[in-house]
Design a protein around this nucleic acid. Structure first.
Lengths: 208, 208
DNA sequence: CGGCATCCTCTTTGATACTG
DNA sequence: CAGTATCAAAGAGGATGCCG
């Protein structure tokens, strides 16, 4: 990317991470941890393969990503964030918080991955009863399910499943989001087509 | 800008503000308040005039900027941030905080405006003695000087001057920044060519 | 399959000149 | 002051090919 040529820290930041796709690659590495090339391509629907290769090289040259070759039997490359790359977390979080205003209307042809629930989950959910028992909520739309786990007052989201979830939400991303943001009540969400299994009461502990 | 087509709040945010120059226009409106077209052009060295016009139209269409015509005697247009636009402040601040790491080496041919000191000032300076008397520090490089004002524990920066500053720093942006970030001691900065007039002791109250 | 590189087209940006 | 118009250069997107 061409430099803005301004001695200002905002412009300098954008010189490094202002290119198209760059921050979305960082988003994936923040959410998923070290990734293979194909993991990234799968989590970044719409990216051209040469674009991903270009951006990874640039991120590496900028010292934000480190490339690590696995041992011969595995024979794959893992892309990690460096410390400087992990420091981008507040920027990505701030973007995610600001961008939720555009999530209210259902996405028409947008792609979705369940681990993207992490942003609205940590934005909207707060444990009002930190001493209470841990909570696990499983989210199912398409592809790999995700789990929101609440323990010791902290909310975290990851891809995967959990043995005995307190609550399982199955349906469109938009409806699940409506429920998490308390824009929709459980009854409304159910009417609109969301399948809710388990104890919907845990949401009151989290969205109050 | 072409949409990423992802139902993720980070991607949605970048759909709106991910274009080149967009966040720098927002930076100026956040730092300076309502601006005329020519104010913006002057504060955004390197921008092409058609690009500025394009981006302002896009920002207006997105509901982040409002255009206000002044009364006939004044006959000028002012560009304001809307509430949604002002909500971008945490994003710009986070970018500014991350980007300071690229400010250590002096800028070779970079442009500079004194009000850009606002980001490092609120990042590095904190009043350790909030009950103490207010402080004013004048910063002079080229162009209009800026003032850092500290009162009631809050640090603010604006373009302009002040009647009786506690401290006046004149010299290169890089040296002033070194002093504000405590990377340079006053003695070191003076040796390197910074002119320091007044009570350099106030810095200890702010950079401790 | 994982990790790219090439080629080609289309879009965006940048520089400059000009206007109501 | 507040933009448009024009044109050249750079970048992004898509399809496909290559190699261990």
């Amino acid at each position: 990317m061409r430099s803005y040529g301004q001695y200002c820290s905002v412009a300098k930041a954008l010189d490094v991470i202002g290119d198209r796709w760059t921050l979305l690659i960082v988003r994936e590495l923040l959410l998923q941890g070290p990734c293979r090339y194909t993991d990234l391509r799968g989590a970044l629907p719409g990216i051209a393969t040469n674009m991903l290769a270009d951006r990874l090289r640039e991120l590496e040259a900028a010292g934000l990503v480190r490339r690590e070759e696995a041992e011969p039997p595995v024979a794959t490359t893992l892309f990690h964030l460096t410390d400087a790359g992990a420091d981008l977390s507040p920027i990505v979080t701030a973007l995610g918080a600001w961008g939720v205003r555009y999530m209210a209307e259902p996405a028409e042809n947008d792609e979705f991955r369940n681990h993207w629930f992490a942003f609205p989950a940590s934005l909207f959910l707060h444990d009002r009863e930190p001493e209470g028992p841990p909570i696990a909520i499983e989210l199912r739309t398409t592809g790999r399910p995700a789990v929101i786990e609440v323990a010791d007052g902290a909310v975290s989201t990851r891809l995967g499943t959990t043995p005995s979830p307190d609550l399982v939400l199955s349906g469109s991303p938009n409806l699940i989001l409506g429920l998490l943001s308390a824009r929709l009540s459980p009854d409304r969400a159910r009417e609109a087509g969301l399948e809710i299994k388990g104890d919907a009461g845990v949401l009151e502990r989290l969205t109050g």
